[in-house]
Every structure is written in structure tokens, then in C-alpha cells.
Amino acid sequence: MLQAEPTQTSMRAPASISLHQLAHARAGDKGERLNVALFAYEADHYATLLEQVTEERVLALFSHRGASRVRRYPLPNLAGMNFVIDDVLQGGVNGALNLDGHGKTLSFLLLSLEVHL
């Protein structure tokens, strides 16, 4: 990746913002497997997502829910990526005691991740 020339702005610590400012997302479930599709609002920000919204960070974000594996499928044509996250549904729509067994609300957990611009 190309590194921008240092300017006065970028000399300071990079600003941290919520992924929600840059991207939109939708979650879906099948069994104990959740998918969250994430899309940059501006194609220019796709590279930021690729660089910072990594499988490792998403696994860490969902670790309290028991996530065992995260796979990321980049879709450059759509300025987006699909995350497939295993074992975060606490039993899924049929087995969970939680309020949202489908994990539909979890798209916004992903969007709460902090990224740097």
C-alpha cells in the first residue's frame, strides 16, 4: 500500500472514528454461523476497511460471544467484504436464550469498531 506523504495533519496521532461513520452493514444467520456484509459508503474508504477491519480484529470484537473463527471475503467490485463468524449465536435461533438468536443486531456491533483515517 502507498503511504501518504506526511503532512501537518498526519503528523498528529491519527483520528479514531467509529466504523459506522464510514460503512454500512447487514447481518444474516444460518445455524450457528453469522455473516456480516460490510460496505464502504465511499469507494475511497474500501482500502481503509481492508487494512483495518481484519479477521483478527473481528474475532477479538466477538470473542466475548465465543467466536471460534472468522473468515473475510473481500469484494472489491462492491467496495465491501463479507465476514463469516462461527459460534457467536449462543445456540442460534433455535437454541439461544439471548434476545436476538438470529444475531441480526450484531451488524451494529461490527460497526462500533474504531478505525483510523
Binding site: H24, R26, K30, A37, Y73, G80, N82
Partner: peptide, 16 residues
């Protein structure tokens, strides 16, 4: 484009 993209990947795992 945004509404269509969100639904295109809905409940999809490996997009290939």
C-alpha cells in the same frame, strides 16, 4: 446501490 449490495450478500457465506 446500497440497498441492493446489502441484500446481495444477505445470509451468504463464501461469495464465490
Amino acid at each position: 446501490e446500497q440497498t441492493v449490495k446489502e441484500q446481495l450478500l444477505y445470509e451468504v457465506h463464501d461469495p464465490a
